[in-house]
């Protein structure tokens, strides 16, 4: 949090991050976290369907769980020390889960 055109100074022992770094964190929190929630909801729905739940039940359950996770992982994107790790876990995890859901959907009878 800098002010106006003042030089960037350490605040509370933490160096103030660059604009690019901040943008990476914000996009990780917004898009990365949503992608992660998307992956969870879609994988959960497929898992539920495989486990024999009615489709509407599986979709509702997995979406509610994903919504619980969404704000927490969005904040975690700010808490994780390295933003690259945040992007890797959220974005990569989201893609992996979505692909896994696809595979489960193909495998399902």
């Amino acid at each position: 949090m800098t002010t106006g055109g003042q030089p960037r100074q350490p605040v509370n022992g933490r160096t103030v991050p660059s604009r690019c770094h901040t943008a990476a964190r914000v996009t990780a929190a917004v898009f990365g976290a949503y992608g992660f929630a998307w992956g969870l909801a879609s994988f959960g729905a497929e898992l539920g369907a495989l486990a024999g739940m009615a489709p509407a039940e599986a979709v509702t359950t997995s979406s509610l769980l994903a919504l619980l996770v969404l704000p927490v992982v969005a904040l975690w994107a700010f808490a994780v020390p390295r933003v690259v790790v945040g992007w890797a876990v959220l974005g990569g995890g989201g893609v992996l889960l979505t692909v896994a859901a696809r595979l489960a959907g193909v495998a399902a009878p």
Partner: peptide
């Protein structure tokens, strides 16, 4: 806040709908 999103969750997080419907 949570229940407000829940009401229209299938519209704003249609991942499960994409998977099964």
């Amino acid at each position: 806040t949570f229940t407000g999103i829940v009401i229209i969750l299938p519209i704003v997080l249609p991942a499960g709908v994409h998977a099964l419907y």
